[in-house]
Design a protein around this nucleic acid. Structure first.
Lengths: 144, 144
DNA sequence: AATGAAAACTAATCAGC
DNA sequence: GCTGATTAGTTTTCATT
């Protein structure tokens, strides 16, 4: 991991579909050298993949919320992961050192959809209760 | 926006660097048709861009936290956006209907770095105080 | 590790359906 | 709005430094 790698990663962060020719130009390396570096970063797992950045509002999933998950006593990390992975509306989830045991970031169509998701979570074995915080608008999104 | 568009977006979500030939194969369309659809989705703003998914732990930014921002009275949305955009460690930020006025998702190297970020935010004009919640681990990450 | 050149593949364009 | 053929551009490989 040197400055060249960081530069390549930064460019890919801006546009993951850019050409090796462009990456070669901005880094000053040859295209084949850039390719080797990217292949190494992929092998090392530093690059986990490439994804598209979507306008979820345009796709009808404009509502974002953070749901605090309070696990039932005895629930394992694996059970919690499975319970959350089962809900396709959950985009990201973390265990926390705070109030709730976990926080789940979700995307919903509207408040009716959000309510469905919350009820589904509350009915999920291993989840004792939830606490939902609705996001009004996105101030900043710097990708991954 | 039909099922074909959704299929293409789903595939790009899995691997944004996949070829038109592969997208044509999975959708059953001709490569040129796939290209036209992607171009239209880009023009409409449904596709905002393409980015790389990184292993931030491997890059030395393994600590994630959510910082609740309590704005000073009279602070505008724009001032808050500017204040948060100025901190490069902030990955995402939202205004909320909850306790804090905004929530900022940050990535830090370690707790020392996190403390620096919090102190910087607390010194920022327009921010009255903050409340930090540290994430212990990531249970789920479904990209964007 | 990086380079440059050649070969293989992929994207972009466009006339026709 | 889709197709398939053509051209332009990009990725991949490899011998060399």
């Amino acid at each position: 991991m040197d400055d060249m790698d960081r530069r390549i990663l930064h460019e890919l962060g801006q546009d993951a579909r850019t050409s090796l020719a462009h990456l070669a130009h901005v880094s000053g390396l040859a295209a084949s050298s850039v390719k080797r570096r990217i292949a190494r970063l992929e092998e090392l797992g530093v690059i986990k993949g490439y994804t598209v950045r979507l306008d979820h509002h345009a796709l009808g999933l404009g509502l974002q919320a953070l749901i605090g998950i309070f696990a039932a006593t005895g629930t394992t990390r694996e059970q919690l992961t499975d319970a959350l992975t089962g809900q396709e509306e959950i985009v990201r989830a973390w265990t926390t050192a705070g109030n709730a045991d976990a926080l789940a970031l979700i995307r919903a169509r509207d408040t009716d959809h959000l309510e469905q998701i919350i009820l589904r979570l509350q009915r999920t074995p291993g989840i004792a209760h939830t606490r939902t915080q609705i996001f009004l608008s996105e101030l900043l999104n710097r990708g991954d």
